[in-house]
Structure formats: structure tokens, C-alpha cells
Simulated assay, not measured.
Amino acid sequence: MGLSGRERRILAQIEQALEREDPELARRVAAINRIEAVGGLPERPYGGRARLWALTHGWVIVVAVALVVVSLLVAVLAT
């Protein structure tokens, strides 16, 4: 069952108020609506590169933390 004319006008007013008050949220809601209209997620613009980037940065953080821990252990044991 579709919306009545009155309901469509109210919804349009709510959308306009949202766009004025929080444009970022309005952009995200519009993106979600596009995804639901198509029936799936859009193509990933970076393909596997985004996943590789995240994995690489994750490992860099793990190695950095390990180096800090080892450095602290060496400093404590050296004294």
C-alpha cells in the first residue's frame, strides 16, 4: 500500500528539514536508500586494495606495539 498525498508531503518536509539540519546524515540516508532500491551493495571502488591497506596498517600497529613492549622489557632488565 502506497503513501497518501498528505503522507508524501509530510515525508518530504521531514527530508528537507533533515537536509538543512544534518546534511551528512541526509547523505548517508540517501546512500542507504539507493542501496536498498538496487537490492545490494554498490561496487567497491578500490576492490581488494582497501582490504590490503587495512591489513597492512593493522600489521604495522601490531609490530609497533611489539617493539615498544620489547624496548620496555630491555630497559627494565638492563637496570
Rank of each mutant, 00 (worst) to 15 (best):
18 L>I: 10
36 E>V: 12
56 T>K: 11
43 E>H: 10
58 G>H: 00
58 G>C: 04
43 E>S: 12
48 G>L: 10
53 W>A: 14
9 R>G: 06
73 L>N: 05
73 L>W: 11
38 V>N: 11
70 V>L: 14
15 E>V: 08
50 A>N: 09
58 G>L: 04
71 S>T: 14
31 A>T: 12
21 E>M: 14
23 P>G: 01
33 N>R: 15
71 S>R: 11
77 L>P: 02
30 A>D: 08
23 P>I: 05
24 E>F: 05
67 L>T: 10
66 A>P: 00
29 V>C: 11
11 L>S: 06
67 L>M: 15
45 P>D: 01
13 Q>W: 03
4 S>I: 01
36 E>P: 00
29 V>S: 03
21 E>K: 14
51 R>L: 07
74 V>W: 00
15 E>S: 08
40 G>D: 08
38 V>Y: 13
38 V>K: 15
44 R>V: 10
67 L>C: 13
57 H>S: 08
27 R>L: 09
22 D>Q: 09
31 A>S: 15
18 L>C: 01
21 E>V: 15
39 G>E: 01
22 D>S: 12
34 R>N: 07
42 P>C: 09
4 S>F: 00
25 L>N: 04
37 A>Q: 14
36 E>F: 11
21 E>D: 15
78 A>K: 12
18 L>F: 01
70 V>I: 14
12 A>D: 07
12 A>T: 03
78 A>Q: 13
16 Q>S: 04
75 A>G: 08
22 D>K: 05
77 L>Q: 10
51 R>F: 10
33 N>C: 09
41 L>S: 11
66 A>E: 03
43 E>T: 07
57 H>E: 13
79 T>C: 05
11 L>P: 00
71 S>Q: 11
69 V>C: 02
20 R>E: 15
47 G>L: 00
27 R>H: 05
52 L>Q: 15
64 A>H: 05
47 G>C: 00
54 A>T: 06
22 D>I: 02
31 A>N: 13
37 A>Y: 04
16 Q>D: 08
68 V>S: 06
25 L>S: 08
16 Q>F: 02
7 E>Q: 14
10 I>A: 04
51 R>E: 15
69 V>E: 02
42 P>Q: 12
35 I>G: 03
74 V>H: 03
20 R>K: 15
41 L>R: 13
4 S>T: 05
56 T>D: 08
22 D>Y: 03
57 H>A: 07
60 V>Q: 12
58 G>E: 02
53 W>L: 15
2 G>C: 06
58 G>K: 02
48 G>T: 11
18 L>E: 01
35 I>R: 12
47 G>Q: 02
15 E>H: 05
28 R>I: 13
40 G>P: 00
47 G>R: 02
52 L>P: 02
35 I>F: 13
63 V>R: 00
54 A>N: 04
2 G>I: 08
70 V>F: 04
49 R>T: 10
78 A>H: 09
42 P>D: 04
11 L>I: 07
35 I>N: 10
57 H>P: 04
20 R>W: 09
10 I>L: 01
6 R>T: 03
11 L>C: 07
44 R>D: 15
44 R>T: 13
14 I>T: 02
